[in-house]
């Protein structure tokens, strides 16, 4: 996370945030949404999968490059959608770098909620788990196969 100098304007904003019921929109999540990490295309051989949340139009393509030992050497995403889904993808790509396939398989929805650091209401579960859903699809594929990049 980036460090901020607390300006007057920002103080006012933080007060609004604290006073509001916006448990969902914590700074870290908003920051990932506005300045996503790893939002790019991986050029080297990798595996990718798309997940969609039909009810609100969220979309994410998760890309993971594995080395021969099935360790994640790079992770990136493309997508569009609400803050929860896009920040979730951003955080997920950070989180999984260096993990191996076995560790990825052990990730649970609970881990994703913890990673997001906010309360996820039932109506936002699909948003929160968009990246996780793409990850699950990836883990069902051969991890060392290059697939064509499909953004649709």
């Amino acid at each position: 996370m980036r460090l901020f100098v607390v300006s007057k304007r920002r103080k006012k904003f933080l007060t609004i945030l604290a006073n509001s019921m916006e448990e969902l929109y914590k700074e870290n999540l908003l920051d990932h949404n506005a300045h996503p990490h790893n939002k790019r295309v991986i050029e080297v051989p990798h595996v990718e999968a798309e997940a969609r949340n039909a009810s609100c139009g969220d979309r994410g393509v998760l890309m993971i490059a594995f080395n021969e030992g099935e360790h994640v050497i790079d992770a990136a995403f493309q997508g569009e959608g609400c803050a929860v889904s896009q920040a979730g993808l951003s955080m997920l790509t950070d989180k999984i770098k260096g993990m191996n396939a076995e560790e990825l398989k052990l990730l649970s929805p609970g881990d994703i909620y913890t990673m997001l650091g906010v309360q996820i209401s039932p109506g936002r579960v699909n948003c929160a788990l968009l990246g996780y859903e793409a990850l699950e699809k990836i883990l069902k594929k051969p991890l060392r196969e290059k697939e064509p990049i499909c953004l649709h």
Partner: peptide
């Protein structure tokens, strides 16, 4: 700059 789903979520809490 704000996805409609986020708009609806914040409005819902209001």
């Amino acid at each position: 700059g704000i996805h409609p789903h986020d708009v609806a979520d914040i409005l819902g809490k209001e």
